[in-house]
Design a protein around this nucleic acid. Sequence first.
DNA 1: AACATAAATGAACAAAGTTCATTTTTTATG
DNA 2: CATAAAAAATGAACTTTGTTCATTTATGTT
Lengths: 184, 184
Amino acid sequence: MKIGRRLIVEESLASVQARRIATEAGCAVGSIYNVFEDLDDLVIALNTVTLTELGQALTKAHDDSRTEPTAARLMALAEAYFHFAGNNRKLWRAIFEHHLPEGASAPPEYRDDQNKLFALVEDCLVGDLPDNVERRSAARALFASVHGIVSLALDRKLGEFEPEETHRQIEFLVGCAARGLSEK
Amino acid sequence: MKIGRRLIVEESLASVQARRIATEAGCAVGSIYNVFEDLDDLVIALNTVTLTELGQALTKAHDDSRTEPTAARLMALAEAYFHFAGNNRKLWRAIFEHHLPEGASAPPEYRDDQNKLFALVEDCLVGDLPDNVERRSAARALFASVHGIVSLALDRKLGEFEPEETHRQIEFLVGCAARGLSEK
DNA sequence: AACATAAATGAACAAAGTTCATTTTTTATG
DNA sequence: CATAAAAAATGAACTTTGTTCATTTATGTT
């Protein structure tokens, strides 16, 4: 039984339904429940793959920019995030569209992947924010900010989605932040 | 038939189900479909109320800060947003948890409410960014950034939710942005 | 009162998640 | 290889939820 993300890519998270996944995988509905606790569990497994890929993309941007100044590095990460989201829209959307029921929380593996992303931003800030606590906080703030811009843009909550416009917004934000940072 | 947001407030968007709404409103299931196209339509109606309330809270912050410098005004708006989200968690979450199916788009009334929020931020930037296009873009970027921070924080995607920490992140971001803005 | 129109109703259907007794396949043992 | 035990796969059946619509009830008009 091989579970793929085709249904998310070609349709959306809403298409990840027990019977369709089963057909797709060439097995019976019940088999899914032998492997996964429930559909939430399966969706998390699929999203973990995407999260890992996102991590790889950001890691590349992080590594490739290692000799550049902070502002450029932050911009490289933000751009990489935006491009990944834009090129893998449905997959990326699935990550944030999926909500665990009330009490439940994601497995450690999933959280680790998340924290790796933050760590990349943190690393770019080592020179500017020597204090660990402060750096940790700032990195998360920056990550969340860029995420917010990309997220609302792709959801078309900021108007029609225009990559150029979103790019400008990211540049504006990261630019301001970098400038604000250097004169702290 | 009176549809309220009690189910969202006390439980979550997931509890907005045809039969429960009907019981709540003291009517038959079918009656809901005489008033609303479908449940999406009903959810949008409920979210519009919340969006209006959010608009009122931000408008107050905007008006109360009218004599202050840009940085303080942006901070006042961001704080108001954070407080509203924190004090109306389920209602606020419902706004962003709800996704229309593929092609569908929200009614004009809903979009107007959204645009009113952006307009408040834009207004704070009139002095610093005289260019209309640039100002429009920057306002949306800032709004989305603060939204991103609040959103991931309340979703506990940045670690455990600690209001103090989120507050610091907002201060960091808006502080950087304001500083970066003034020396443009 | 008689009729027409509008509103409300809830049984019935469809779609989707989940369960689990049964069947099939695999592995282990003599 | 035969046989039994264990593991994996199966899909019919059940549950829950959105939605429809023929029927009933309420309201307004002449």
